[in-house]
Write a protein that binds this DNA or RNA. Structure first.
Lengths: 157, 157
DNA sequence: CCTCCTGTTGCAAATGATATTCAGTTAGAC
DNA sequence: GTCTAACTGAATATCATTTGCAACAGGAGG
């Protein structure tokens, strides 16, 4: 299973960087993996607290998420106001996001050409890209429909 | 001059939204305009405090920047960690940013094709885009040269 | 299995960015 | 001018995140 493989690699990563292998860290990975692709830390902390009492404190969650970012299994994908939405990338190929500002839905997409033209831009500026983030904020189709319906109700007899 | 035109439009915007025309607001615009294209609020507050004693308090700067965002003359362009870098867009055409993680340099660019493919993606998902932000983090050419030089020093005799 | 050292945990307190409250001040409609 | 609603500054609150610290637990070496 992929998750097990990931955990083994993470274990290696921890060892190589002078960190210890603790139960808590791996439990947090399990929780993140079973939570869904996108999460906010506060959300995750509450979710964890609701099912298993105290497998990890808020600080430990923050610290572990940071480790997972260094390791490369977690990525900050959306910054909206003071919120940070993380993604459990775990082997998933790179992609970008559409974010519905009405309902918060997040749609993932990958567009080869966008990546290519980014590389082209970097070359033109002799810029060595390390990572990037493309966030498109807007309104998803469901919310668009809902808005039209409401308008109809307001306007109609 | 463009700045005057912008201020006139902002004045109209304020009136239309039940806000008052105050000296402070326009002084803040002047400061932002003369500061440079990109700024962080704390930076701006300190800068203002250093030249003119108390043309505006921190709160007023925050409030005015928010108004300018609603008005459309200021945009949050980079979110890096807990930092927010704003841009005084004032009529400038839309563009994206390369951000050097070594020296903080910000390079603006516009790539028609990237915009087009974004629209294509949105269409494919029946998604109505409102705005977007593309941040490419990496190392600028100057810093790349500097890194190589340092390496040479370390390795060399 | 014991010991010791170092990294880890949980909590509470600190931080840093931003928002809000409130009392005093002004813009600008009448 | 008068009056009210909006504005300002200062202090305070809030929210996400980080840090200091004391107690604790991996895991290397005996």
């Amino acid at each position: 299973m992929q998750l097990e493989e990931l955990k083994q690699k993470f274990e290696k990563f921890l060892r190589q960087n002078g960190h210890k292998i603790t139960k808590g860290r791996f439990e947090i990975i399990d929780k993140i993996a079973s939570y869904g692709p996108h999460f906010e830390i506060e959300e995750l902390v509450r979710w964890i607290a609701n099912q298993d009492r105290s497998i990890a404190s808020r600080s430990t969650v923050y610290r572990t998420v940071r480790l997972l970012q260094e390791f490369g299994a977690v990525r900050e994908v959306i910054k909206l106001g003071n919120r940070t939405i993380y993604e459990f990338t775990a082997g998933k190929p790179h992609h970008e996001h559409l974010i519905c500002v009405e309902c918060g839905k997040i749609i993932e997409f990958y567009k080869e050409e966008i990546e290519e033209f980014q590389d082209k831009v970097c070359e033109e500026h002799n810029f060595t890209p390390l990572n990037h983030r493309l966030e498109i904020f807007g309104i998803c189709s469901d919310c668009m429909v809902r808005k039209h319906e409401n308008r109809r109700l307001e306007v109609g007899a």
